[in-house]
């Protein structure tokens, strides 16, 4: 194995970032997806569009605006400084926040689809059985939307692992803090260290393939057929 300590540290950091981002996104994304799936408000379209923006925006745009917004002159930067958190660029916390925004559509969309597919009927039945809305959500909706949750978790984890542009723009390439695998691969390639680059890049390729296999295996279609 020709993985260096720096490579291993980058792998560990990437897994931590992706794990934490996925956990946070499931907490934040579920209510958003539920609201988007159930609401009749005119706000549904604008909110849905904002949540989907990171899907179409180049990471350079997102990274650049995050850098400006989190900076000393930016709104976010002023807020974090006022809260005594300091500035977020060049910190792991900053990366987590950026990743949550960046991977948001990968959690919200599968969940929203799963919630919409459930329809009104099971909720009405639960209500006639006097289940509280919260009870209905955890006893009826969550089990029914399980494939959606699995897809959302796998996609957001994988998408965060594959994140590059945003991290590059706000990370500052600090070992053990912001130097993730994709940045490390970029460093190797730019430094003409193609041997080292191959180990990490090949690993990434294999990982991504396995993730997509998993998504296809757990995807909503498959589960419905099994059920």
């Amino acid at each position: 194995m020709t993985l260096t300590d720096a490579d291993l540290s980058a792998i560990r950091l990437t897994l931590e970032l992706a794990g934490l981002t996925t956990a946070l996104l499931l907490v934040v994304g579920t209510p958003i997806a539920w609201w988007l799936a159930r609401t009749r408000s005119w706000l549904k379209t604008p909110v849905g569009s904002i949540v989907t923006l990171p899907l179409v925006l180049p990471p350079t745009v997102l990274g650049f605006y995050l850098l400006v917004a989190m900076g000393p002159e930016g709104l976010l930067g002023k807020a974090t400084q006022a809260m005594g958190l300091g500035l977020l660029p060049f910190t792991f916390t900053g990366l987590v926040l950026a990743s949550v925004i960046y991977s948001m559509p990968f959690v919200v969309q599968p969940l929203q689809n799963a919630f919409e597919a459930i329809g009104d009927r099971p909720l009405e039945v639960a209500a006639t059985l006097r289940a509280s809305p919260l009870d209905t959500f955890f006893s009826v909706v969550v089990p029914l939307a399980r494939p959606g949750f699995l897809t959302a978790a796998i996609l957001s984890f994988a998408h965060t692992v594959g994140e590059f542009g945003v991290v590059l723009m706000i990370g500052g390439n600090i070992e053990d803090k912001t130097r993730v695998v994709s940045v490390q691969i970029y460093n190797h390639v730019e430094a003409l260290e193609y041997g080292e680059a191959h180990w990490l890049a090949g690993g990434m390729l294999l990982f991504s393939f396995l993730v997509l296999m998993a998504v296809n295996a757990f995807g909503p279609d498959k589960t419905r057929r099994q059920a």
């Binding site: 400006v68 900076g71 002159e73 500035l87 660029p89 590059l168 600090i174 730019e190």
Partner: peptide, 20 residues
């Protein structure tokens, strides 16, 4: 205290936005 830009343009960006 060192933060690294991948190239000199990005390094300038860190300084110009006041983050560094």
């Amino acid at each position: 205290k060192i933060v690294q830009g991948e190239n000199i343009a990005q390094t300038y960006q860190f300084a110009a936005t006041g983050n560094a």
